[in-house]
Nucleic acid binder design. Sequence first.
DNA 1: ATCATAAGTACGAATAACGAACCAAGTCAA
DNA 2: TTGACTTGGTTCGTTATTCGTACTTATGAT
Lengths: 258, 258
Amino acid sequence: MTKPEQDRNISSSFAKGLAVLAVFDAATPSMTLAEIARRTRQDRATARRGALTLVQAGYLRQQGRMLSLTPRVLALAGGFLQANQFGRRVQPILNQHARKIGAEVSLATLDQGRVLLLAQSTTEHGPITYGFTAGAHIPLVHTSLGRMLMACLAQEEAVALLESADIPQHTEQSRRDAAEILPQITKARSQGYCLTDSEFEPGIIGYAVPVSRPGQTPVVVGSSAPRGRDTGRNTEALLQALQICAADLRQTNVVEDL
Amino acid sequence: MTKPEQDRNISSSFAKGLAVLAVFDAATPSMTLAEIARRTRQDRATARRGALTLVQAGYLRQQGRMLSLTPRVLALAGGFLQANQFGRRVQPILNQHARKIGAEVSLATLDQGRVLLLAQSTTEHGPITYGFTAGAHIPLVHTSLGRMLMACLAQEEAVALLESADIPQHTEQSRRDAAEILPQITKARSQGYCLTDSEFEPGIIGYAVPVSRPGQTPVVVGSSAPRGRDTGRNTEALLQALQICAADLRQTNVVEDL
DNA sequence: ATCATAAGTACGAATAACGAACCAAGTCAA
DNA sequence: TTGACTTGGTTCGTTATTCGTACTTATGAT
């Protein structure tokens, strides 16, 4: 009577359940029922039904009062990874260049205004930086990957995204003002690469170059390395290597479709 | 009127929606609505609601009449991977041993009666075998990983699983009779490793050893290599290397909890 | 002990999902 | 071409399902 009936094509209970599954991120890998309810802003009873359904479906496990993800969630991602030939085509390229560069190489895209790590080189030696893996979300405004991704958008989209993003302060050097950051994005777009210095981790310089072509959904590849005394020379070489890596990735056509 | 009266704690629409998301696997990375409905055995209208909800939530994308997964599904798995420190602790171990062995190393567990690849070494050189990645399902009865996993179960569970599994014929050498396969599983359990020869890919020998301790949820690590003329000697070395790899993985305690 | 928080149960009301029936637009074979 | 078939989309009455309040039962900390 009162309610403008919402889209009959959308299953609201399903959407709520998905929200339950999505709250399990790296920061909170296991939660209690009440915590889920709070974070999804659902009624406790509703969250409970969603969680129990996920348990029954095998995506969550319940030990005591804690709920946590099961390996089965990997199967959901597996379809995407295999369909896009990540194992066969993307990963080798990332590894190859990571080895040449001597640092980890990451492939990332935008996902609901956050940086989503699509793949990451796995070097046997070399510094293991942060324990990021495919599927991880990383900061948007203070990483070279994030800024380069925003630079892949049209200027007005980038502005909107930047303004809606919150700007934490990871380090002393983290720029806090959007007005300071926006020029960096514009610069990145015009010069075709992005550098950040110590804004996410002190002493670490981030490098990123675009992979996607203009108009496509943004995909970038990047790396990071501690600032050394011959940083100037290295920067050139590193960016060039990343550009080649990006070109190789473009050739695989796996980034064509998002 | 009648008695639907199923568990009030389970949200059936949510479960149906999850089923829609789960049908997207490596074999069928993009499907039409009708196809989804057929494979999930849901009414077309029901499947449509589920799919559209997934589109709105950003997990599916619709191009023309085809629906396919978006990278966002990676975010679901990302929580699991980060929580268990796969990037930091598991992957380096797999890579290190893969390099030593000279072949890919895979970590796998059981998921609803199928073999689920948890992680896989990414070698820069060396043979890139099948394009398997984390989250992929691989055959159960004709791979060393699968048989070793079944060997990790109690005998009666293994028997039940084997009997419920279908037995395709990948190669000429694929054993087709459960009565033939069961002894192989028993043998694997008693000797602590499993070998398969050309039952999945002709000329390829599969090796697997357990990682999980008895009673835990089964986790195994394995590798594969083409049969050469010095296979006999290599088998020894390879199994030993895998055992060490398994021991290293046990020490990380990441497989404790599945 | 008390207080606070979490989890489980129950149930009537409200509604959201179901699926049949139908239409329009492709698609393919004859 | 025609005609049979498939697919996607829409509508709509029925009813099963979900919602959320309220109550009760753990668990745990002070």
